[in-house]
């Protein structure tokens, strides 16, 4: 109610890009999730202005869009590191020692879950099942799943990342 009278639009480029992303999808009923995916795929996260922009684009309220963004763990509201490393914490991986691997990787990167390494290269996230449970333990580095993981194999992957080959 505070911003009752809309001001003349002075739109940032972020807002304009979100509007464009929405424009391609918004005619589909229930398009909010696909649009949020598009936003996160584009920016690497969901920028703060997204709720306001999508509310007007989709005839929703800011609250509704915010409620959706905050409900789904996939959507991050702050930028991530250059790469995202997911460690599977689900039962099958636990049965194959993922808890120890998790501890070791955290130590290796010197961060906890939802944190990013000091050099901005890797953000660490938990994940609950990657569907590769016959080859546990598993991690996911960006879009690729890696099975039968060990700390050594993780170190090798991270090394390859540094060399730009992963």
């Amino acid at each position: 109610m505070a911003a009752h009278i809309p001001l003349a639009p002075v739109e940032s480029s972020t807002e304009a890009r979100i509007r464009t992303l929405a424009g391609d999808l918004k005619q589909q009923p229930g398009a909010l999730l696909p649009i949020l995916h598009a936003v996160q795929d584009t920016f690497g996260y969901v920028p703060e202005c997204t709720a306001a922009v999508l509310a007007t684009e989709l005839a929703l309220s800011r609250a509704e869009v915010h409620g959706v963004i905050s409900f789904y763990h996939h959507f991050r509201t702050r930028p991530a590191g250059a790469h995202v490393l997911h460690i599977c914490r689900a039962e099958a991986c636990q049965s194959m020692g993922s808890a120890a691997l998790e501890r070791d990787i955290k130590q290796l990167l010197n961060i906890d879950y939802h944190q990013t390494t000091a050099d901005g290269s890797v953000t660490l996230e938990p994940v609950y099942c990657l569907g590769n449970c016959a080859c546990s333990p598993n991690i996911r580095l960006d879009d690729a799943v890696h099975g039968r993981m060990t700390l050594a194999k993780t170190e090798r992957l991270l090394q390859l990342l540094k060399e730009g080959q992963a």
């Binding site: 009923p29 229930g30 398009a31 909010l32 999730l33 696909p34 949020l36 995916h37 989709l58 509704e64 409620g67 959706v68 409900f71 789904y72 763990h73 996939h74 959507f75 609950y128």
Partner: peptide, 24 residues
């Protein structure tokens, strides 16, 4: 349609809410 990291959306009614663009 891609989900967004919510196990509960495997429950059919939460799934439908999510497909409708809502909280699951």
């Amino acid at each position: 349609r891609l989900a967004a990291g919510a196990y509960i959306c495997g429950e059919e009614t939460a799934l439908l809410e999510s497909l409708e663009g809502k909280r699951g």
